[in-house]
Design a protein around this nucleic acid. Structure first.
Length: 349
DNA sequence: AAGCCGGGGTT
DNA sequence: AACCCAGGCTT
């Protein structure tokens, strides 16, 4: 069998422990194995069982998750760990239907856990499976349409081997990831070359079909990096809807376009941010905006260094979010902020 | 049904 | 610059 010869030796392949499988599957949602692997190792070391994960803090989980993206996964991970530990005596649901009720667990993840841990015949349909099935069977139904989602799940369910559903699921995903790749698949040495409809019809490059997607928004961020003479700065936690929920960042002034110092000081948000501080100097750190690219928006970002005067300390003006600069690294921050801190630290701090 | 949610690798 | 990754939730 192809899988047994070509499979990668990955840590979650040596266990049927639902905790480990669940953790790996959540981490690998929309994430490459190579990117998720080091996070998986660190999480397992920090939280060997669901008990440790459930009894830590959300901040600690987010800090360990930092850089992996899609942070709602980390928040749902924590919520689910607490639910299982406190409401279910630490015992995972043991079938597909109950697994589906867990936060952050959809059809794919429930199928993966049920098939791998409990030998339940539930076919996974991830990006790899969509690609392999659409090509081999020559299916042009858009994979991200309601009809496509149903059609591919049904087909996958027909094909799955009921004797080793977990192995079957991992095999077809591995095949998609390693052989039937998005670009330049090696059709010449493919085990399905005798029956692949896409190959026969020369449609490999056009399958799978995906419905067109979103346009990218531009946003303009101005971060106010407050530096007191005591070596403190200010971080705020993002609590609203949108990107980076629950992560920390410097006080943010978002504008409609790039602004200079004069314009920045006229923005109401800036005045709210700086209220209570005696800012001695405001210096633009990066003349050229840092362009941080997310999948759906580009963030044109400038950092402004706001140095506080000595008078500021004497007045005892204080805010609850003041943090020694050395402690900034304890907080979960977006990669955009982390990159700035690394760059800034080279000659400062 | 459509939009939103990250960061990084590949081409 | 476009595409995609062991998807799921919200509107």
């Amino acid at each position: 069998m192809w899988y047994l010869q070509h499979k990668r030796d990955l840590p979650w392949r040596n266990t049927k422990d639902p905790y480990r499988i669940w953790l790996s599957e959540i981490m690998l949602q929309q994430t490459r194995v190579a990117q998720g692997l080091p996070y998986y190792e660190r999480f397992l070391k920090a939280f060997p069982t669901i008990k440790e994960l459930a009894t830590t803090s959300e901040d600690k989980i987010l800090k360990l998750w930092q850089g992996l993206g899609y942070y709602s996964r980390a928040r749902n991970l924590y919520a689910t760990a607490n639910y299982i530990w406190n409401e279910r005596n630490g015992k995972f649901p043991s079938n597909y239907k109950e697994l589906l009720t867990l936060k952050g667990v959809g059809d794919y993840t429930a199928s993966a856990i049920a098939s791998i841990c409990y030998d339940e015949k539930q076919a996974v349909v991830d990006g790899n499976v969509y690609r392999v099935l659409s090509r081999v069977f020559g299916i042009s139904t858009p994979i991200n349409s309601t009809a496509g989602i149903k059609e591919f799940k049904s087909l996958a369910q027909l094909l799955i081997d009921g004797r080793q559903p977990g192995t079957y699921n991992q095999a077809i995903m591995e095949f998609g990831a390693r052989h039937c790749t998005p670009q330049n698949p090696d059709c010449g040495s493919c085990i399905f070359s005798d029956r692949c409809i896409a190959l026969k019809k020369d449609m490999v490059g056009q399958l799978p079909v995906k419905i067109k997607k979103l346009k990218i928004k531009k946003r303009y961020f101005n971060y106010i990096v407050i530096l007191s003479e005591e070596g403190k700065t200010v971080l705020k936690q993002r609590t609203k809807k949108g990107i980076w929920q629950q992560l920390y960042e410097f006080p943010l002034v978002e504008t409609e376009a790039e602004v200079d110092e004069i314009e920045l000081k006229e923005i109401q948000t800036f005045n709210e941010v700086s209220e209570g501080y005696n800012i001695e100097s405001l210096v633009l750190y990066n003349e050229a905006s840092v362009v941080h690219k997310l999948s759906h928006q580009h963030l044109y970002t400038r950092f402004w260094i706001a140095t506080l005067s000595e008078e500021n300390q004497k007045n005892g003006n204080r805010i609850e979010n003041e943090i020694p600069i050395a402690r900034v690294r304890d907080y979960a921050v977006p990669v955009l902020i982390e990159n700035f801190i690394s760059d800034f630290s080279v000659f400062k701090i």
